[in-house]
Write a protein that binds this DNA or RNA. Structure first.
Lengths: 219, 219, 219, 219
DNA sequence: CATGAATGAGGTTTCATTCAT
DNA sequence: AATGAATGAAACCTCATTCAT
C-alpha cells in the first residue's frame, strides 16, 4: 500500500508553499492599491510597501507591473465564470437561476469591493493598461459570461418561459443592470438589503414596469 | 439711435475667433487621443501632433493635462444635461419620452464615439485622472442626469403609467441599460438599427420579458 | 544767423521722444520685477505686464532678457561713478568727503531700493545672469568706485590725515561697511536716522572702537 | 553582561554608511556646480555628472533641486554658528577673540571657496531660490551670527574694552568687513597673507584710521 | 530568496524668442 | 510701432526595472 497518498498539490515543500503565500499577499496588496489609485497612479513602491515586501521581491513573482494586474484579474475571473456557469445550469427555472445569479453577484460586490472596482474600471477602459494580447484574453473571459447568459436565455425562450425578444436586447438588459448593481449597489448599505431588492428587480424585468400590459403581443 | 447693435458675443475680433477655433481643434484632437489611448497613455506630444500645434501651444489654452481632460468633459456634459432635461419634460407620456431619450443617446453614441468612450472610461474610474475637486464637479453633473430620470419616473408612477417599484431599481434598470447600449451599441453597425432595437427594448421593459405575467400584483 | 539753435539732444522728434520714454518705462518696470523676484524667477510676461506693454514690445528696445538687465545697471552705475568721483574730489578733507559719500549712498539706498537690491544681488553673484563679456564690463565699472576710494585714501595718507594702513584693508573697511549699510540700512526706518548714524560711524572708524588707543604706533 | 556596547551611531550597516557617503559626494558636487554657475544656471544633469551618479540618484537623497541647495547650506552653517559661538565665548579679551574670529573666517574662505561663494551669493539674493519657509530658516541661522557678535560686543563695552557706539554700527563695521574679506580675500593669494593682514585690520578698527585722535570724547 | 540603491528613458511643464498681422 | 499666438529647446522630476550584495 502506497503511503505517499498526497496529490501533487499536496507535495509542495515548505519553500513552495511559502512562495505561493507570498504571491497571494502581493496580489491582495496590489488589488487594494490598484483599486484605490487606479493602475497608472499606483506605484510599485506603494504596492511593495503595502505587501510588506521589497520592490525587488515583486519581480520574483511577476514579470512586470502589467503582469501583476493581469494576474489579479485572470485568477479570479476564471473562477467566477465557473460559478456563473454552475448557477445558470438550466436545472431550475430561468427566473430562479437568474435570481441566484444576481444575488451571487450582489454578494460578490460586497465581499470583494477592491477587486470589483478594479475589474470594472479596467474593463470599461478596455484594459488599456495591458498589452493588446492580454487585453483580448481578458475580454474573451468576460465575453464568456455574456455568452452563458445569452445561451441560457435562448433556452428559456424555447422552454416557453420568455417572450421573443432579440438576444442582444435581453442580454443588454441583464448585463447592464447587473453591472450597475455591482457598481452602485443601488445605494444599499448591506448585502441583505440588496438581496431583497433583487427579488423586486427580477419581478420588475419579468413582468414589466407598465401598469397596463398594453402593446403586449405574443407573436 | 445707436447703430452699434452688435451683442458682445458677435464682436469677437478675428484674433479672438481664431483663438477659440484653435481651442476647439485642440479639444477635438485631445478627445480622439484620450479615447484611443486612455488619459495616462496619451502624451501631450501626441495630442499636439494630432492637433497640428506645438506642445507649448496647448498651454496657451489649458493650464495642464488634467485641465485638458476636464475641459473636454465639462463642455459637453453640460449641454447634454440640458438635452436630457428637455426630452424628459413630462409633456408626453413617459414611454414616449423614454423612447426619445434612448434614441437620442443612441444617436449620440454613434455621432461622438470618441467622446463617449472617454466619458465612460473616465467616469467608471471615478475620474481618477483628476483632482478630487474637479472629479466631484463632474460626478455632480453626472448625478444630475440620474436625478432627472428618477424624478420623471416618480411622476409617471403618480400618473398611473408605472407600477410601484423602488426608484433605485427603476433607475438602475434604465441607467444600466442606457450605459450598456451606448458602450456596446448592442453590436449594431448603424444608428438606424439601434433606433429600431430601442422600440423593442422599451416594449420589453414596459411589458416584461416573461411569457406569462404571473406574479403580477398591483399593490 | 542760424535759427536752428537746437542742440542735438533737443532735436528729437515726437516719435523719438516717445520711444525713449517707453524705454524708460520698461526699464523701471523691469527693475521692480527683477528686484522682487530675482533675474531668473522674473518672466518677460510679468515685466511686460508691469510695464503695460506687450511682450513683443520689449524686443523693440532690448535685444533680449540679458540686455534688459545689463541696460538697467549700466545706465545708472555710470552716473553714480561720476557722482562718487565728484564727491571724493579732494577739495575738502577726507573725513568730510567720506561722510558725504556715505550720506549720498545712504540717501541712494532709500531712494532707489529696487535698483540697489538688484545691483547688490547681481554683483554678489558675479552677474551670473550675464555673458562673461558684459559681466566684466559691469565689474570694471564697479571696480572703478573702489579705485576712486583707494586713490583718495592714498592722498589723505600723504596729506597726513590718515595713518599708514594697507590700502586693501582701508578699502575693505570702507567698501564693506558702505555695502552693509546700503543693504541693511542698519535697521533704520528713515534716511534721516541713517544720516545721523553715519556721523557716528565715521567717528568710529577714524578714532577707533577701543577705549584706550593702546598699540598705536605712528610708524 | 551585554557585549554589544556599540552606540546606535556606530552600528550603521555598510549599506547605510555607503548611502551617507554618496549623499556627501552629491552635496560636494552640487556645491561646486552651484558655486560656479549659480543655482538657476546649474542643471541637475551637470550635478549628476559631476557627482558621477545618475540624475535619478539625486532624488534618492534630496527631494528636489531646492532641497539640494538647502541641505548644502544648512548642514554647514549650523556647524559654523557653533564655531563662532565658541570663539566669541568671552574667555579672552574682545580684541583677541575678534582676531581669532576674523582668522577663522579667513581660513574658512580659503578652505571652502565653493561653499562660501555659494552662501554669499544666495544670502545676498535672499535665498530667492528657496521657498519662503526655508529661506526664513536659513536667514534665522545667519542672524544668529550677528546676534552672537553683537552680544559679545555689548559685553566688551561693559568690560570697558570698547567705547560707546551704537550696536548696529559696530556690528555693521564687523559684519561688513568680514563679509568683504571673505568674498575678496582682500586680493591676497594665500591664507597666511590674509592672516597677517587681519592683525593690521584689527588694529585699524580698534585704534582708528585717523592720524590724530581728534574728536575723541569718552562719554 | 530578498533587498533597495541605482538607472535612464520618457513625461509634463516653462518661457525666451520670433513673426505674421 | 505694437501685438500676442506660436514655437521648441531644455529643464525638472517620476518610476518601472535591474542587479550587486
Amino acid at each position: 500500500m502506497n503511503l505517499d497518498t498526497k496529490k501533487p498539490s499536496e507535495t509542495l515543500s515548505r519553500r513552495e508553499r511559502e512562495k505561493l503565500a507570498h504571491r497571494q499577499e502581493i496580489l491582495i496588496a496590489a488589488t487594494r492599491v490598484f483599486a484605490q489609485k487606479g493602475f497608472f497612479n499606483a506605484t510599485l513602491d506603494e504596492i511593495a510597501h503595502e505587501a510588506e515586501f521589497s520592490k525587488g521581491a515583486l519581480y520574483l513573482h511577476f514579470s512586470n507591473k502589467e503582469d501583476l494586474l493581469y494576474s489579479i484579474i485572470e485568477d479570479k475571473v476564471d473562477k467566477y465564470v465557473q460559478i456563473v456557469n454552475k448557477i445558470l445550469s438550466g436545472k431550475k427555472s430561468f427566473k430562479v437561476e437568474l435570481t441566484d445569479y444576481y444575488k451571487k453577484m450582489a454578494a460578490f460586490s460586497f465581499d470583494e469591493k477592491d477587486f470589483f472596482n478594479l475589474l470594472m474600471t479596467q474593463h470599461t477602459s478596455g484594459f488599456s493598461a495591458l498589452s493588446k494580447e492580454k487585453a483580448k484574453k481578458l475580454c474573451a473571459i468576460h465575453d464568456k459570461v455574456n455568452e452563458i447568459v445569452t445561451v441560457r436565455a435562448e433556452k428559456a425562450k424555447e422552454n416557453g418561459e420568455l417572450r421573443d425578444f432579440p438576444p442582444a436586447a435581453v442580454n443588454g438588459l441583464i448585463h447592464g443592470s447587473v453591472k450597475n448593481m455591482m457598481m452602485t449597489r443601488w445605494s444599499f448599505e448591506t448585502v441583505e438589503e440588496l438581496h431583497n431588492a433583487v427579488d423586486v428587480f427580477i419581478n420588475m424585468i419579468f413582468t414589466g414596469i407598465a401598469k397596463e400590459r398594453e402593446g403586449y403581443s405574443d407573436k
